[in-house]
């Protein structure tokens, strides 16, 4: 209901495996945030992770981009199982993300936030930057051009020079998406990109996500609570509850799975009632 996909998402266009999560476990003291979770994300997919509050969804993304280290299990990215890794290493391998609670650089403008997201593509050295010679000047122009395209795409032209701290919530979420896109990631992790938005803003955001996936073939892992959005956008869904995977499949399969309905959709209906 919230989103009108231009193209029905078909599992057929999914490509080779991009990320494989096998038996991943994560615990904080006594709390088991993730227990033996496994799934696989294929290229060009929009892959959603759903589940009630505290299910471990954000923790899963945090493991994928190296913010948390799983206590057991393996994560294989682009065919290579990986060991300990820092978030900046994940970023340089092509994983970008947005946060459940916006994490923008509040002292900087929209443009500077997005330009910062592009820094991995910047090669100019400190000395070149200091003297504004060589690659410094050239790259700055090229990156500015690229970032302006993102700004146009996200329809935030008039907020280009506004400090992001003063922007309304919905626009901040957009800028954060822009910052992630600037890195031209292969895998984009979106943690509740539509939380707290009104219907119109949600529709815009859904359109952006579909376009990014469609036009640039970017693989997306999405956490979202709005079931209508998830069912419309996703190629594949995994359902978590209390750190455990309780279901996986296409939107149709998941929405008719009795365990999922009981654990998640059921409780949500109760809350709404």
């Amino acid at each position: 209901m919230a989103a009108q996909p231009q193209e029905s998402a078909g599992a057929a266009r999914a490509g080779e495996s991009l990320l494989k999560v096998e038996d991943v476990q994560l615990s904080f003291g006594g709390v088991h945030a993730l227990r033996n979770v496994s799934f696989e994300i294929r290229r060009r997919q929009i892959f959603s992770i759903i589940g009630p509050n505290g299910a471990g969804k954000s923790s899963m993304l945090n493991c994928i981009n190296g913010f948390y280290q799983p206590s057991a299990g393996t994560i294989t990215y682009k065919g290579e199982p990986r060991k300990q890794m820092r978030p900046y290493q994940a970023a340089s391998q092509g994983i970008a993300r947005t946060f459940q609670n916006i994490a923008l650089f509040t002292g900087m403008s929209t443009l500077d936030n997005i330009m910062t997201g592009r820094h991995l593509k910047a090669q100019s050295t400190l000395v070149e930057n200091a003297l504004w010679i060589g690659r410094a000047r050239r790259e700055e122009m090229a990156h500015r051009h690229f970032c302006e395209e993102i700004i146009d795409f996200l329809e935030i032209q008039q907020h280009r020079k506004t400090p992001v701290g003063t922007l309304p919530y919905g626009l901040q979420k957009r800028v954060e998406l822009g910052r992630a896109l600037a890195a031209e990631p292969e895998l984009l992790l979106l943690d509740e990109p539509m939380a707290g938005m009104n219907l119109e803003e949600k529709q815009d955001m859904a359109r952006f996500i579909l376009d990014v996936n469609d036009q640039y073939g970017m693989t997306i892992a999405l956490i979202e609570h709005d079931m209508a959005v998830v069912m419309d956008l996703s190629d594949r869904i995994v359902v978590l509850d209390h750190g455990e995977k309780i279901g996986e499949g296409t939107p149709d399969e998941v929405s008719s799975d009795p365990r999922v309905i009981e654990a998640y959709l059921g409780t949500q209906q109760e809350e709404e009632a």
Binding site: T106, G107, M108, T116, A136, A183
Partner: peptide
């Protein structure tokens, strides 16, 4: 020159939110 370049933006990113800075690869 430094503060308007990618070097300066990285500094400001660390200043404003070091966790987010690291996640975008700084």
């Amino acid at each position: 020159n430094l503060v308007r370049s990618s070097t300066g933006r990285k500094w400001m990113a660390i200043r404003d939110m070091d966790v987010a800075a690291e996640i975008i690869g700084i």
